[in-house]
Design a protein around this nucleic acid. Structure first.
Length: 722
RNA sequence: GCUGCUGUAGCUCAGUGGUAGAGCGCGUCCUUGGUAAGGACGAGGUCAUGGGUUCAAGCCCCAUCAGCAGCUCCA
């Protein structure tokens, strides 16, 4: 008789050929009824999977807080949805349908676009399938057999899936009394039967590229959610709704913080006075920290010559997300076009058709330039030869007639400040900081409130240091980032080490430099003791990064702070310092921005506090509201006193009752509402209420002021939830 | 950029081819009030923009712009 181990350590003897379901039954009838799957040696399996001697077996039951149970439930719900869609739309080809956080989706290929109007019909069909409580049966066959089967069926997607799977292939069949009625290639596991799906709902439909490839077919992705019970589903929908109330776009509107105006341009933020307060307070906090940490402040303009970005590599590595360059003359525009074509050729010996076409255009439109390009003996552009000499020639000509670029990054400007004077090893590290505004032409579909915009201000700085200073400097940046996040009570973030994708051509610099830089970020994170994940392919084009990533109210991940190690730009700009040996050496650069961008950071902060900012950040800190006209003068004097003391205070002496006045202030999430009537006037006091509606105390104006000052100095008092 | 959805008053939204609506907000007046929305009256719209269909278009069709969700990108 085989014996198996249970999670509590008990050993159970079971019949040979016993399944997970049998194990559950042996333990107890109620467990047998509740069981929906098992975990054998840590692996999630069907209830009908046989167990073997020595296995550790855990029974999975349907609970709203058990990730394994939800995984199986949602996988099965996806399967049921697929069946429903196939029955309603027989042309549907199924592609892939996994469970995801909070639900599941299924990618389908169907010419007719599905819309939310189709959901009721699909849900109704799903409900019938669930109602019928059809069993899921697993059908396993060896790889060759399985491949033959899917190839015979002829679906491109299934063949692809099957070919990419390892080992045996399994199919799941849902059955009726009259036999199998739906089958899908699927790894499983599934619920024992469809009836276990307690509650489900289709959520949305959208496009998704096959295998995530923009050049491949775009499929329809139907999202749904599934839960053990209706109550769980209702609770989930309620949570979703609560989360949406925190949305910074909504709160930004309600609290008059910012506006994104179509007439100004999409992705361009207009900070209204109240939002500007948030931004200024954050800038002041950061400026203070930077002074402490030995940074020096600089200011640089928002545009720069194209040659600067040719040197940095933004042209062409970063070209697709830049606003088009501005050219001073046709000559400059044409030269640049030719330069791009020459760079694209790389080291190729033959001039490309594209280069030739540009050259022809130049001949037609700008004969003088054409002559410059072709006249000089020995450097004739029109001759064959490696691109490099041509690029040099172009670079020389471009020096005389260049274009300008709205800057996508601040580093080139800061680099030129570094190079503006000779640097000694004693001067390093040089830390140049600026709230630098940059512009990036993000794809239109990517724009989102404050979190993804086209013009934004980074709390940027560039550190130029000696190689022996690098680790300390990176550690300093990481600590600074943690410190400011901590000050703002943002503690729910992921630290991500972003590395390059080997073999990709989207990076500049040598392998050796990348190896050095990646070692540096890895050891800095290791030394910090923070838990981290590694993300291959997430590096900047010039170097690896340590990113601080948070989630917004609808679960999307955003990078906030970042620390990036860069050996490459120092080389491209030929940076140097004089060492103690009186020889020239190459510094290392660190790019870092603890907030990342002020726009995104404020967006996340709005959601974090749900608009109820701590006193030091609150755009309006106090509202003074009079009980009646009789106390209006006193209210005004209180307002004046608080304003004089530096508080951001507003006065409400309108002809309204105190109830509505208080309500209005609370709706604006103002931390303190001071109610003043004749009684307070006679005592020179204020009646203090917080934004939760609670009446705190009646105290002298000066006492209230002292408490506010302390609260502001401590940056405390956050999140008195309204 | 791609797929789908959406665009009506400052905001949230109703309005299925026949003269533009509600609530909130805003203004004026009444009420001068003691802690989660007092009352009356009023102003406010080229129904995103441009074309088209129709006797007639907020509504139907096309295009553009913008927003939302997802995908793809992302320094």
């Amino acid at each position: 008789m085989p014996s198996i181990k249970l999670p509590d350590g008990k050993v159970l003897e079971v019949a040979s050929s016993a399944t997970v379901a049998d194990v559950a039954a042996t333990i107890g009838p109620r467990l047998a009824k509740a069981a929906v799957a098992g975990k054998v040696n840590g692996q999630l399996v069907d209830l009908r999977t046989p167990v073997q001697d020595g296995d550790t077996v855990e029974i999975v039951t349907l609970k709203a807080d058990d990730p394994d149970a939800l995984h199986v439930l949602r996988h099965s719900a996806a399967h049921v949805m697929a069946q429903a869609i196939c029955e309603l739309f027989p042309d549907t080809q199924l592609v892939y349908g996994p469970p995801v956080d909070d639900g599941f989706y299924y990618d389908i290929d169907l010419d007719r676009p599905l819309t939310p109007e189709d959901f009721p019909a699909i849900e109704a069909r799903m409900a019938e399938i669930v109602q019928a409580d059809r069993p899921f049966t697993r059908l396993t066959m060896n790889r060759d057999e399985g491949l033959e089967k899917v190839r015979a069926e002829g679906s491109r997607y299934k063949i692809d899936n099957a070919e990419r799977a390892n080992g045996d292939l399994s199919f799941y069949v849902t059955e009726t009394e009259s036999g199998p009625d739906f089958e899908d290639l699927c790894r499983g596991p599934h619920l024992p039967s469809t009836g276990k799906i307690g509650a489900f709902k289709l959520m949305q439909v959208s496009g998704a590229y096959y295998r995530g490839d923009q050049d491949d077919k775009q499929l329809q992705r139907v999202y749904g959610t599934a839960w053990p019970t209706r109550k769980d589903l209702a609770a989930y929908l309620q949570r979703l709704e609560e989360a949406r109330k925190r949305d910074h776009r909504k709160i930004g509107q309600e609290l008059n913080l910012f506006v994104i105006d179509a007439q100004v341009g999409s992705g361009l933020v207009l900070w209204k006075p109240r939002g500007a307060v948030l931004r200024r307070e954050l800038e002041q906090l950061m400026s203070h920290e930077l002074r402490q940490a030995g940074y020096e402040n600089v200011y640089t303009p928002h545009i720069g010559r194209l040659s600067l970005y040719r040197a940095s590599g933004h042209f062409p590595y970063y070209k697709e997300s830049q606003f088009p360059a501005m050219f001073e003359s046709d000559r400059a525009a044409l030269l640049n076009e030719l330069w791009e074509a020459a760079v694209a050729r790389g080291e190729g010996p033959e001039m490309t058709a594209e280069e030739r076409a540009v050259l022809d255009k130049i001949e037609r439109n700008c004969p003088a330039l054409h002559q410059d390009l072709t006249a000089e003996t020995g450097r004739r552009y029109a001759e064959h030869g490696p691109a490099e000499p041509n690029i040099k020639l172009l670079r020389g000509l471009l020096e005389q007639a260049d274009g300008y670029l709205l800057r996508p990054m601040n580093c080139p400007h800061h680099i030129r400040i570094y190079t503006s004077e000779p640097r000694s090893y004693r001067d390093l590290p040089v830390r140049l900081a600026e709230f630098g505004t940059v512009y990036r032409q993000e794809q239109s579909g990517e724009l989102s409130g404050l979190t993804r915009v086209r013009g934004f201000t980074q709390d940027d700085a560039h550190i130029f240091c000696r190689p022996d200073q690098l680790l300390d400097e990176v550690a300093g940046c990481v600590n600074l980032t943690r410190k400011v996040l901590d000050l703002l009570e943002l503690r729910d973030y992921e630290v991500r080490v972003s590395l390059r994708e080997p073999g990709s051509d989207k990076y500049v610099g040598s392998d050796e430099n990348w190896v050095l830089a990646e070692q540096a970020v890895r050891s800095a994170v290791a030394a910090s003791g923070m838990a981290s994940t590694e993300a291959v392919g997430e590096a900047a084009f010039y170097g690896p990064k340590i990113d601080f990533v948070v989630r917004d109210c609808i679960g999307r991940q955003w990078q906030l702070g970042t620390v990036q190690v860069d050996y490459n730009l120092p080389e491209r700009f030929d940076l140097s310092y004089i060492g103690s040996d009186n020889a020239s050496h190459r510094p290392v650069m660190i790019h870092r921005a603890p907030f990342g961008s002020l726009e995104r950071f404020v967006g996340i902060l709005i959601e974090h506090f749900a608009g109820a900012f701590p006193l030091w950040l609150a755009p309006v800190q106090v509202v003074v509201a009079s009980i009646s006209q009789k106390s209006a003068d006193y209210a005004t004097s209180v307002r004046d006193r608080l304003a004089e003391a530096g508080l951001r205070v507003e006065l409400d002496v309108t002809a309204e009752k105190i109830g509505p006045k208080k309500h209005a202030a609370r709706r604006q999430k103002v931390p303190y509402i001071l109610v003043v009537g004749e009684q307070e006037a006679s005592q020179q006091s204020v009646n203090v209420n917080d934004r939760s509606g609670k009446m705190l105390v009646t105290e002298p104006v000066e006492a209230f002021l002292a408490r506010c000052r302390e609260e502001i100095a401590n940056r405390s008092g956050a999140c008195t939830e309204a």
